[in-house]
């Protein structure tokens, strides 16, 4: 019995230490942003890597999510004679939940993985030590440009995902399901508020922080050898995805107080 308690205790302690380390990395990063020279050239490279190279993934995710969500909503709502309300449901759901969460999960898989693999490889091949030996702080050089690029790219990617999702939903609803386009649009515009979009973009910003700090932390603490880097990469993706999903719930509850849902 005591063994179970010590076992659970150890896991809880390890979790607290882990979260603490990630928070310390985040604090160091923000301290560095405000006090150290920022490497804009690496920032631009990261914008290309994160923002530009994620386009296809985000567009496809947005389009097919919007399309399938419009279809499913229609199948249910049509029975109630509420087909023209589909637009409102689709757009609010994509703005508030689907857009930010799905984009964050896709970016985790693409960008979080490559960040932890890249930094992890540098760590195990002594390149991080070489940086330090050359009087360059790894946080300044590796984490800050990535964090800034993520904070800028994620809201834009989410906005793009939302836009594409709504457009795809519209096309499916009007083109395939033959909902009246005018009513569809009118309902959508009436029920979708600025605050729904702001909520989505706020979430995007928070997810950006989760992904970048978890992935960079995994890379920087990666263990020796190719196995260590592989493990760090997998853990970065799993931990970031879980963090996104868990924090999304709390963000929804918290942000709903600031930006309440529904027509008022």
């Amino acid at each position: 019995m005591t063994r179970i308690f010590t076992g659970v205790g150890a896991v809880v302690v390890a979790l607290f230490i882990y979260v603490g380390e990630v928070v310390v990395l985040a604090a160091e990063t923000f301290a560095s942003i405000f006090s150290q020279k920022i490497r804009w050239r690496i920032f631009m490279d990261q914008i290309v890597e994160i923002g530009l190279r994620s386009q296809l993934v985000v567009v496809i995710t947005g389009a097919f999510t919007g399309a399938v969500f419009a279809a499913q909503t229609f199948f249910q709502f049509n029975k109630l004679g509420m087909g023209s309300a589909v637009g409102a449901v689709v757009s609010v759901a994509i703005c508030r939940e689907l857009g930010p969460v799905l984009t964050a999960l896709m970016v985790t898989g693409r960008v979080g993985a490559s960040m932890s693999a890249e930094i992890g490889t540098m760590k195990v091949t002594e390149q991080v030590d070489a940086l330090r030996a050359l009087a360059v702080h790894p946080v300044d050089y590796l984490v800050v440009p990535r964090a800034l690029a993520m904070m800028l790219s994620m809201p834009l990617l989410v906005a793009e995902c939302i836009g594409v999702g709504i457009a795809a939903g519209y096309l499916v609803a009007i083109g395939l399901l033959e909902i009246n386009g005018t009513y569809y649009m009118a309902n959508m515009v009436r029920w979708t508020q600025m605050r729904d979009i702001v909520m989505g973009l706020s979430k995007a910003f928070c997810f950006a922080l989760l992904i970048v700090f978890i992935s960079c932390h995994k890379g920087l603490t990666s263990r020796e050898g190719a196995v260590g880097v592989g493990k760090a990469t997998t853990e970065a993706v799993v931990d970031s995805s879980l963090a996104v999903l868990i924090c999304n719930f709390f963000l929804t509850m918290a942000l709903n107080i600031i930006f309440p849902a529904g027509y008022q």
Partner: peptide, 23 residues
Amino acid sequence: SERKLAAIRRKVGILFQGGALFD
């Protein structure tokens, strides 16, 4: 601290066993 060490590290160069080049 890591930031205070920077001043020392500008005075002391180190060649790593494997070179540790930025790949």
